[in-house]
Amino acid sequence: MQWLRQYLSGTSGGGGGTGGTGAYADFESGTDGWTASNISGGPWSTTAWSSKGLKSLQVDIQMSNGSQHYMFKSGNFSFTGSQLKATVKGAGWGNYGSGLGVKLYVKHGNSYTWKDSGWLTISAGGVANLTLDLTGVDKANIKEYGVQMIDASNSSGQTSVYVDNVYLWN
């Protein structure tokens, strides 16, 4: 129960990259070292939306047929939980077509082995709570973790995507 008290009080970890069961990123004081690729703006900490606290991480993306976008943190990390969790929201504008696919992922080990949560699809304004089971992951050798987004074939226009409350769960 101690980890739950720490998580709910926001005192367990912040944006650090080593062990613990607390939040790995809450974006309350900045980007927490996260970056992004194939985006048109960001990432930055924003008050436009959050799932916990006052802020989240935002990127702007240009949607097109099958385009992939990433928000992530790279480095050398050691995870102690059994699941990695994050909340993702799509902004209420842009043509999402049949939806924006989102998944949580890690790259681990010396060969950067990929493992992900599987796809969830969100529409404009939609929220997804992502959970990645870390079974089989070299948790002492995490190289990168983040959120991958892929546009539907019938999507177009610009939108924003928000990520918040990235944490480990025992």
Results as ranks from 00 to 15, higher is better:
S64P: 00
S64Y: 12
S64W: 09
S64A: 08
N65Q: 05
N65H: 08
N65Y: 15
N65I: 07
G66L: 09
G66C: 07
G66R: 11
S67V: 04
Q68Y: 05
Q68F: 08
Q68P: 14
Q68C: 01
H69K: 04
H69Q: 09
Y70R: 09
Y70K: 11
M71I: 03
M71T: 08
M71E: 08
F72W: 01
F72K: 14
F72I: 03
F72D: 03
S74G: 14
S74E: 12
S74W: 00
G75I: 00
N76L: 10
N76M: 01
F77N: 09
S78W: 03
S78H: 13
S78D: 06
S78A: 15
F79H: 11
G81H: 03
G81T: 02
G81E: 05
G81Y: 09
S82I: 00
Q83T: 04
L84F: 08
L84T: 10
L84H: 03
L84M: 09
L84D: 03
K85R: 15
K85N: 14
K85S: 14
A86S: 15
A86Q: 09
T87G: 11
T87S: 12
T87K: 14
V88Q: 11
V88P: 06
V88K: 12
K89E: 11
K89I: 01
G90L: 01
G90T: 05
G90D: 13
A91L: 01
A91V: 00
A91P: 12
A91H: 13
A91D: 15
G92R: 02
W93E: 06
W93I: 08
W93M: 06
G94D: 07
G94H: 04
N95G: 03
N95Q: 07
N95L: 02
Y96A: 07
Y96T: 03
Y96Q: 10
